[in-house]
Design a protein around this nucleic acid. Structure first.
Length: 397
DNA sequence: AGTCCACAGGAAGGGCAGGCGA
DNA sequence: TCGCCTGCCCTTCCTGTGGACT
């Protein structure tokens, strides 16, 4: 039998793999950003007018997930604010991420978050919207300053709330007496700007920047830079960085994914008490990341949504073709068993759409002629993962 | 060509909870 | 405590639709 004390003492005695694991997280800001020198320079030039207290153009940054958009924007605006201090100017940077739940997913909350970051407390619900606009406006115009409003995942905001808020924000400048406001919009949806109201489009997107995906070699450079900070010398086995970079390059050159792969591979090796991270750990890391994210998504869903998924799994085991109507029938039975009040078919249809969006299922609208129009629903998970999901659902329901 | 199925999905609105000021 | 305002989840009602069948 293994002695628990031995495990602990082995762990303490073992040479540490990590020297600074934080260097592998997305929030870590390295001093330089490899392969984004051009973008950093262009963005800096576009924002430089701030230092002469004039308003820079509103900017728009496009690029897929993990292409360094937020990192570059954060880096340049932070440096800009520093430079401004030296010149006796005041630059305030307000960072908003619209994907953060309860942060900026509605017009009201976005405004409340902006006001809060500018030092003005606004209750997270309760006030009429025009009053919140007023609070934001006043806190921007409270002194002679340039406010840079960095809105990350701006497409998520517009999808949820429409583009009125952007229209209103872009018009704020004409009313400001002493301050100036510039908006930096960041999105990974390349078609996003075309869907905007033309008035918003022209004023919001005065200058555009496109961040291309990283290729495998560039990802290797990024990983090496971070790995040098994160791992002890000799902790990475041969081919580890190359493998993590190659896997992430397949996922549209996502640096975030590459960093996650390396970090989790390190954690897996560390947990087993091994002194070197190998390519096998990178493979295991890929599985673990995918599994964990799926299970976590499912765990965070409300019971109704879990019941819909349980119905889909039950049907998918019997039949290859699963339609919305089938799901609704089985879902109703599950609700009776669970003592849940069943939702309407309309609502269940939306829940199916959400599961599709999460990538847990794929739901394609098809027409079966006289058989009607419905969705063809399939599980998008491996059979191993389905088993794990099933036991998670039985545990939770 | 027209019909008809089984939904998709948009629009409107109800009910509730959280939070405010009076 | 009350009236008001918000977001959120949900229902109800409705129109739209691809393609097999008549």
């Amino acid at each position: 039998m293994t002695n628990v004390q031995d495990i602990f003492s082995d762990y303490v005695k073992a040479k540490p793999l990590f020297t600074n694991a934080a260097a592998l997280t997305i929030s870590f800001e390295p001093g330089t950003i490899p392969h984004r020198e051009k973008q950093v320079e262009e963005l800096a030039r576009a924002l430089a007018p701030v230092l002469k207290c004039s308003r820079p153009s509103n900017l728009f940054i496009y690029g897929k997930t993990g292409t360094g958009k937020s990192l570059v924007a954060h880096h340049v605006t932070t440096e800009l604010a520093k430079a401004a201090v030296g010149l006796g100017q005041k630059v305030r940077v307000v960072n908003i991420n619209c994907k953060m739940k309860r942060g900026a997913d509605t017009e009201y909350r976005l405004l409340a978050t902006i006001a809060k970051q500018l030092g003005r407390e606004v209750p997270f619900t309760g006030l009429p919207t025009d009053q919140v606009y007023k609070a934001v406006f006043e806190s921007i115009d409270s002194e002679k300053q340039v406010v840079l409003l960095v809105i990350d995942e701006i497409d998520a905001l517009v999808r949820r709330t429409g583009d009125d808020i952007l229209y209103n924000l872009t018009r704020v400048n004409s009313e400001l007496k002493q301050a100036k406001l510039a908006i930096i919009g960041i999105t990974n949806d390349l078609g996003f700007i075309d869907a905007l109201d033309p008035r918003v489009r022209s004023s919001l997107s005065e200058e555009e920047f496109v961040f291309p995906p990283y290729n495998a070699l560039q990802l290797q450079d990024i990983l090496r830079q971070r790995a040098n900070l994160a791992f002890a010398p000799g902790a990475l086995g041969p081919g580890v960085i190359e493998k993590a970079a190659a896997l992430a390059a397949q996922e549209h050159g996502d640096a975030r994914r590459a960093l996650d792969l390396l970090r989790v591979a390190g954690e897996l090796a560390d947990r087993k008490g091994e002194t070197v991270v190998t390519t096998a750990h990178v493979d295991a890391s890929q599985d673990k990341i995918d599994t964990d994210s799926v299970l976590e998504t499912i765990r965070s869903q409300p019971r109704q949504s879990q019941s819909v998924l349980a119905a889909i799994i039950r049907l998918a085991e019997k039949d290859r073709f699963v339609s919305t109507g089938d799901v609704w029938d089985v879902y109703n039975k599950i609700c009776v068993d669970q003592g849940l009040r069943p939702l309407t078919q309309r609502r269940v249809s939306d829940l199916i759409g959400e599961l599709d969006m999460f990538g847990i299922i794929t739901a394609r609208v098809i027409s079966k002629g006289r058989g009607g129009r419905t969705r063809d629903i399939e599980l998008a998970l491996s059979s191993q993962l389905v088993e794990k999901v099933k036991s998670l659902l039985t545990e939770m329901m």
